[in-house]
């Protein structure tokens, strides 16, 4: 049976450490697949102007494209090149909830994330989300320092 490990990235160094840890873990398992996930923080309950709404679909496509080309695809390519089986997913939503949902949907057995990033926007993405994930995830979570 194939073991699936989900790696949550936030585009920072801590994500790199999460990947390194997951690689180490996967190397010790006979059949292991890695799922690289990047969640773009988004809530359906925010307030927007009509113009923002009209442009939203376009912006969403741009956000997904940016996250894929800059973060997820390079990570997946590097993992595949290193001999691992890896796939990538980019999705909008609440980071903790969505990461857990993707894990459950794909039959993941463990989630590996980096500890909260240290600064700015990225901190918002993975800051308290790491704690929420640890508290509410349906599978074991490893937080890499």
């Amino acid at each position: 049976m194939t073991t699936k490990i989900v790696i949550g990235l936030d585009g920072t160094e801590t994500g790199e450490r999460a990947i390194a840890f997951a690689k180490d873990l996967a190397g010790r398992i006979d059949s292991c697949e890695l799922l690289v996930v990047y969640v773009i923080e988004w809530s359906p309950f925010t307030f927007q102007t009509p113009e923002e709404n009209a442009l939203r679909h376009k912006r969403r496509e741009e956000e997904v494209e940016l996250a894929s080309t800059r973060i997820v695809t390079p990570a997946v390519d590097a993992l595949n090149a290193a001999g691992f089986t890896a796939h990538g997913i980019v999705r909008h939503g609440d980071v903790a909830e969505t990461l857990n949902a993707i894990t459950v949907e794909n039959g993941g057995t463990q989630i590996v994330v980096g500890r909260a990033s240290a600064d700015g926007f990225k901190k918002r993405i993975f800051g308290s989300s790491t704690q929420n994930l640890v508290m509410h995830a349906d599978v074991p979570v490893t937080v890499v320092n």
């Binding site: 773009i40 988004w42 359906p44 309950f45 925010t46 307030f47 927007q48 709404n53 939203r56 679909h57 969403r60 956000e63 997904v64 999705r91 909008h92 939503g93 969505t98």
Partner: peptide
């Protein structure tokens, strides 16, 4: 997710 939701509209 990420598109305009019913709530937002």
């Amino acid at each position: 997710a990420g598109e305009v939701s019913h709530f937002q509209a």
